[in-house]
């Protein structure tokens, strides 16, 4: 069986909020290393990979592999019943047809308990190859969100060009064109506001802005986001957490 207690409901709320629009129904794969998820969106253009490591829970018990098929809109409704500072305990049997959630508030001794029905979801797992990316760009989450939002007003696509000087996001559409360039820089007082580019070779790739805007729903998970690019492979957008990550992969647009 699974028993996993997380100190702060807000962590789980933010993770689900980050992915629910992209992958409304998905399997949470639980085993002794933690709770993981891998799912493609309906159009198979983007893939979400999430991990909440066992050491982010206390206690954490899961002695065999359990897949929890969850409708994330249903889970969101139940998680709204938890306050951000509540502890959440997740419980499920070995072959479960429901997931039990207990929310506890130690301050006012309030305990609430919910069960949500699980679904059978036939989901194939894809092998994600270990990739040495040509460019890896770390920038403030809020900056990335702003760039995606701004450029999505002009165009459906953005070209991301990484050089050792920095990264340039550019787009063109019916009303005109636009670009934002971030030069590599280090903010000594606030390192999370720095822009860092690790580069082995220059990269220039084009992606759909609609998906990037969607990925930015994960912005509350981390102060920085890392974009990893190589020519002709999907972009990796990674939000790291203390005990896990949310990664989005986005297939590029290529010349016809």
């Amino acid at each position: 069986m699974l028993e996993a207690r997380i100190e702060q409901a807000s962590v789980l709320k933010r993770v689900i909020e980050a992915i629910k629009d992209l992958v409304p129904d998905c399997n949470f794969d639980c085993n002794d290393t933690g709770i993981a998820l891998q799912a493609m969106d309906n159009s198979h253009v983007a893939l979400v990979a999430m991990l909440l490591r066992a050491d982010g829970f206390s206690p954490y018990r899961c002695d065999r592999n359990i897949a929890l098929g969850i409708n994330l809109n249903s889970l969101t409704k139940v998680l709204r019943c938890a306050q951000n500072e509540d502890m959440i305990t997740l419980k499920a049997d070995d072959a479960p047809d429901s997931l039990n959630l207990v929310f506890e508030n130690t301050e006012n001794e309030r305990i609430s308990e919910y069960d949500i029905k699980l679904m059978d979801i036939d989901q194939e797992h894809l092998g994600i190859p270990d990739t040495e990316y040509s460019a890896s760009i770390t920038l403030p989450t809020a900056e990335f969100q702003r760039i995606c939002r701004d450029l999505s007003q002009l165009s459906e696509s953005v070209a991301i060009e990484a050089t050792k000087e920095g990264v340039k996001f550019s787009c063109s559409g019916d009303i005109g064109n636009g670009s934002v360039t971030l030069r590599t820089h280090q903010n000594v007082d606030k390192p999370e506001l720095s822009t860092k580019v690790d580069l082995t070779e220059p990269v220039n790739l084009t992606f759909s802005l609609k998906y990037l805007v969607n990925f930015c729903k994960a912005s509350s998970l981390s102060q920085t986001v890392t974009l990893s690019l190589s020519n002709e492979v999907p972009l990796l957008v990674e939000y790291k957490m203390d005990n896990g990550y949310v990664r989005f992969y986005l297939a590029p647009k290529i010349d016809e």
């Binding site: 493609m40 198979h44 194939e124 894809l126 084009t206 297939a251």
Partner: peptide
């Protein structure tokens, strides 16, 4: 123009 590719053309089922 550019054409959108899919994830399945890069990552294969396990």
């Amino acid at each position: 123009g550019k054409q959108q590719t899919t994830i399945s053309s890069f990552f294969t089922p396990k």
